[in-house]
């Protein structure tokens, strides 16, 4: 069946890369395709993306993938078994629970922490930064001094203080990490805003009578998004490490939740004789952190407007 169109048929690639886009959609898709081309040229970035996609798949299908119950162990018969014993591929921990199953279910916690922190901290930082940068004057001064106060504390110490005040638990750990990770985003968003606030297109929008609220939301924030995404992705490894650190100190996820940091903490006692109990979750944290870092690096290169071809 032919479509009956006689216009010269563009391949999909040519359509996307066309320098005379016929519609807004075509322009946007074309731009996204350029980004993807630059991104996919970077093998390491692809590997990072692969790791993160795998993490998401594992988290989604944890119930199907895990060979054992992650919270019910066999204390009597299956305690501290080395990797490869029977059906325990990565061995068992001191409660006789399968480490692989715990790692698989723990990926949900890791992903939840990362996503929730990103959802809370990035918009908060973006809002504070753009408002501060666009409004200027005393609003800027007040917001930036608050940001300074948060930046003055080491992140982990501040998170520890928040968790100690709120009480241990995974929700409070997420909140604490979010509360401590927004200031860099605010700083960055402010810098970007200062760059665009006097540009012609903003002046044009203002002349058309747009309110400051609309300007910030529709015309300033989108300009900050790409650098924010890069920054958040690069920070995710740090977020995972902070969450694991809180778990390690007993302030994050509480037993029996299979949080990776808490798993390392409980395996530390056996490090001399049963090395796998602490090592396996450590490797999991390493791989996922590496994945986020590679992905973030790739995104930075791909999204950097200075290197953009268009």
């Amino acid at each position: 069946m032919t479509t009956g169109l006689d216009t010269p048929v563009l391949s999909r690639r040519e359509w996307l890369l066309s320098d005379r886009p016929a519609s807004r959609l075509q322009a946007q898709l074309g731009r996204a395709y350029m980004v993807w081309l630059r991104f996919s040229a970077n093998r390491l970035a692809l590997a990072g993306l692969g790791i993160i996609l795998m993490l998401i798949v594992v988290a989604l299908f944890a119930d199907v993938l895990a060979p054992h119950n992650p919270v019910q162990g066999d204390l009597r018969n299956a305690r501290l078994l080395p990797p490869g014993t029977g059906s325990y591929l990565l061995g068992t921990d001191d409660q006789g629970r399968d480490i692989l199953s715990r790692l698989i279910h723990g990926s949900r916690l890791t992903l939840a922490v990362v996503v929730l922190v990103a959802i809370i901290a990035a918009p908060l930082g973006l809002l504070v930064g753009t408002v501060s940068g666009y409004a200027g004057g005393w609003v800027d001064a007040v917001l930036m001094r608050i940001t300074d106060i948060f930046l003055a504390f080491p992140k982990l110490v501040l998170a520890l203080a928040f968790v100690a005040a709120l009480g241990p638990g995974i929700e409070n750990a997420i909140l604490a990490i979010a509360l401590t990770s927004w200031p860099p985003y605010a700083r960055m968003a402010r810098a970007e805003t200062l760059g665009v606030r006097h540009s012609d297109y903003i002046a044009a929008v203002r002349l058309m009578g747009a309110s400051p609220f609309r300007i910030v939301l529709r015309h300033v924030m989108p300009m900050c998004l790409s650098s924010l995404i890069v920054r958040v992705t690069l920070d995710m490894a740090g977020i995972i490490l902070t969450a694991a650190g809180l778990g390690f100190l007993g302030l994050g996820a509480q037993p029996p939740l299979p949080e990776w940091g808490a798993m390392i903490a409980s395996g530390r006692r056996f490090i001399l004789d049963q090395w796998w109990v602490a090592t396996m979750p450590g490797i999991a944290i390493l791989i996922v952190s590496l994945g986020f870092n590679l992905l973030g690096d790739g995104l930075r290169d791909a999204l950097d407007p200075r290197e953009a071809g268009q």
């Binding site: 919270v71 204390l75 241990p168 007993g250 509480q254 037993p255």
Partner: peptide, 27 residues
């Protein structure tokens, strides 16, 4: 936060769950 009581508490948490008792450990 000390062994062996933490281990015993976690073991009790697991066995109690089998009878439907939800034990929340506060360390």
């Amino acid at each position: 936060n000390i062994q062996p009581v933490t281990g015993i508490a976690e073991s009790f948490q697991q066995t109690a769950a089998q009878a439907g008792i939800k034990v929340e450990i506060i360390p």
